[in-house]
Design a protein around this nucleic acid. Structure first.
Lengths: 148, 148
DNA sequence: TTCATACCATGAAGGTACTACATCATTACC
DNA sequence: GGTAATGATGTAGTACCTTCATGGTATGAA
């Protein structure tokens, strides 16, 4: 049984995820919570509804994640200026620094991984992976539509 | 903020995983249970201990997964011929067919994805992705060792 | 042969990530 | 100004995972 490129791609995802979980063990952070922080870092303060659709999870689930992140001091809830039903979730100052560092680590890891590729083929590999990701996104979107 | 190749690779993993979950919704199968079946398909009947180390989860967790798979008729527990403590978990006939089909689908998807890559660059992309996966595996192994 | 030790599976208890449904307050619209 | 949509959350439940404790079985040394 040959190892397909898809096997390799999935192996990368699993390795990364597993390693993230290990790295955060004992810090109170988990991968789901880091995803929340990641979105907030990229897009700024937002309501839990917006967070839910950005993360593609139920709003109810976001409430729990924000509860945990608020208890550990990574985010805080502020009243929404125009809508008293909603809350704005925003990063704390320390979380902002943590996430900036994480982003640097992420970029460094990406560079290290690309370093394992033959220099003459790096551009082709980057293009190819992007093409595969785009194709898969299309396939998934089609499958999702076909069911609804 | 540029999109790195690591972002793309992780996007692929997430898309795939999300789509798997959607595809199995309502069948009684989940991604963790499919992973069990996948290992059994590749390596044949084995004890729950072996399954636990192959999946890198606790033996206790395997008990629950096998319980569910046994209840849904995908596997059955057989006594181990040489060790009355252990059980051998093996695929049912129908699960064997299901997994064979899944493997064909998997290969077809891999081919479809590779089809999105420029034909002249496919070999380079396959090599590059494999190199990245291997490098990441080494990095993760090192990090794991550094902590223990 | 027997006794200590290691090992396999599982019970008990608990944490996190998710879901659907119901509820309450607030907003938006006719 | 009343009705309908919307934002957050309570309740209840499932799946996946953990550690610790227990009972049965295997193994190797005294």
């Amino acid at each position: 049984m040959n190892v397909t490129i898809l096997d390799r791609l999935l192996q990368i995802g699993e390795l990364f995820q597993h390693d993230m979980a290990r790295a955060f063990a004992g810090t109170g952070l988990t991968s789901a919570r880091v995803r929340v922080l990641w979105v907030l870092q990229h897009s700024g303060p937002m309501t839990q509804q917006a967070l839910a659709s950005a993360l593609e999870v139920s709003p109810r689930n976001v409430t729990g994640l924000v509860d945990a992140l608020e208890a550990s001091g990574h985010v805080h809830r502020a009243p929404h200026p125009n809508d008293r039903r909603a809350v704005l979730v925003e990063l704390s100052a320390t979380a902002e620094q943590t996430m900036a560092q994480m982003q640097r680590d992420h970029a460094a890891l990406s560079a290290t991984l690309l370093d394992a590729v033959d220099p003459g083929e790096r551009a082709a590999v980057e293009r190819g992976v992007a093409a595969i990701a785009d194709r898969l996104a299309v396939l998934v979107a089609e499958a999702r539509e076909a069911e609804s």
